[in-house]
Design a protein around this nucleic acid. Structure first.
Lengths: 246, 246
DNA sequence: CGCCCATTTGACAGCTTTCAAATCGCGTGG
DNA sequence: CCACGCGATTTGAAAGCTGTCAAATGGGCG
């Protein structure tokens, strides 16, 4: 439980700073948050539905996802998380976890005691507001996902997911424009879009035929960004990213 | 823009107090928030996607919903709001509204300047945390809705929605156990569940045949709460309500 | 070389949607 | 008090998208 000398939390601070103004003291306080770094294998649980968590988790590298299992055993994925994302912040304020968080790949996480976070928010209202804003953006993304699974067909849903991941990875400085890592099986893409793996397969084949994407193992190259966005009915506004990125 | 002598915001404070401890000073400060009350006709917009809002809206009576329109014109409803719910808090921190908020019925709202809210959160960290927690619960509900439209069939989706509304109205002190108001057309229920109005009709007919509900105009009576919950794969945990209610 | 997991393929069933048209409920106006 | 009109609910038949169930193929790793 000690602060790394390398700014392990820099990615998180960068992400927060994209949407919230933070002064030098606030930034430093965030970077100085006490934490313990851990490396987690793929497919492991970071949080289980029903858990009482005492820590906040920040993703330092790798990919994780949130999910929940329906009564019939079907799994729904709610979000994919990248380096710098705050996970399990909710569970600090809600006491009981209402969903699972699992690694998609090997992932490095920083475990921060909730106490330390809340102390910071009391000392720095701007930090509280930045974290709150982050939560609100999460909510906006959830709403878009409801729209995605509720109103769009298979082709649109998958295209939309690919667009979101492309843009978020770019915003996080994880990918150079045309291609990026997509460490999900087609089955998992199905769980995120409310489709079966089989149908995701047919859908992505069609997208390749149409020249929208080029999928290699574990990564995707978007060959026609304009058309992919159109195919996915994608409008980046819901991500509330700064106007910059291409 | 003056504080009503009747505690107009009492319903909001009660809701926050269900999940967050607030002392007398914090409670009073919330009740004293400057606001202007307004009566809105059914079907009117309180917020439009793209708006820049300067106020927070608290629902004093009536029903409102959040929604967004997909590229093909389909509408998805994300949430139904009751007396005491905080609307459009997001837009204070996010600058541009990413979805619409509309009235379902005639509704009375309190319009509170964001400035006043943020001043309060800076003065009272507990208030900031209570509002943040409210946002997190919103997020939890959104996740459950993703699961609902993504993984459940028509019968389950509608049953789940009916269970949620029953429980939330009861928690808000708006309904006595078996029946409650449901001021939505079948078409709107469809928009909330990712179904067509026609199919919602057939689904609800089946629910009546099975003795689960008894729907009159504008309200619903749950004739078999146990079975309805089972039919809807409903587990109240995601609402993060206090353990009390039946 | 062989195993295991992910991807791919095919045929078929099924839940929902679509598109109309008929009913019903109810407020308005004669 | 009854007729009219409009929106909401209901009904029917047919089409379509997606799911299901297997089985085959492919690729990576021990």
């Amino acid at each position: 439980m000690l602060t790394a000398n390398t700014p392990a939390l820099a990615a998180m601070v960068n992400k927060l700073a994209q949407r919230s103004k933070l002064d030098a003291a606030e930034t430093q306080a965030l970077l100085d948050l006490p934490h313990r770094a851990e490396m987690i294998d793929p497919g492991r649980y970071l949080v289980r539905e029903g858990d009482k968590a005492h820590n906040c988790i920040v993703l330092l590298s790798g990919f994780v996802y949130r999910s929940k299992i329906a009564g019939n055993g079907a799994r729904q994925i709610f979000s994919i998380h990248l380096r710098g994302d705050l996970i399990d912040l909710q569970n600090g304020l809600l006491s009981v976890a209402d969903h699972n968080v699992q690694t998609l790949t090997r992932a490095e996480v920083a475990v921060i005691p909730h106490r330390a976070i809340f102390a910071l928010t009391e000392a720095f209202p701007a930090v509280a507001q930045a974290l709150w804003r982050d939560t609100l953006v999460d909510g906006s993304i959830f709403r878009e996902w409801i729209l995605n699974v509720g109103q769009r067909d298979a082709h649109q849903r998958v295209a939309h997911l690919l667009c979101e991941l492309a843009l978020r990875q770019e915003a996080a400085g994880l990918a150079e424009s045309p291609s990026y890592k997509l460490p999900m099986t087609q089955e998992q893409i199905g769980d995120a879009t409310g489709l079966t793996g089989v149908h995701v397969n047919r859908t992505m084949q069609r997208m390749r035929r149409e020249g929208l994407i080029h999928a290699a193992k574990g990564s995707v190259t978007i060959t026609d960004w304009e058309q992919l966005q159109k195919a996915g009915d994608f409008n980046r506004a819901y991500l509330h990213l700064p106007a910059t990125a291409a």
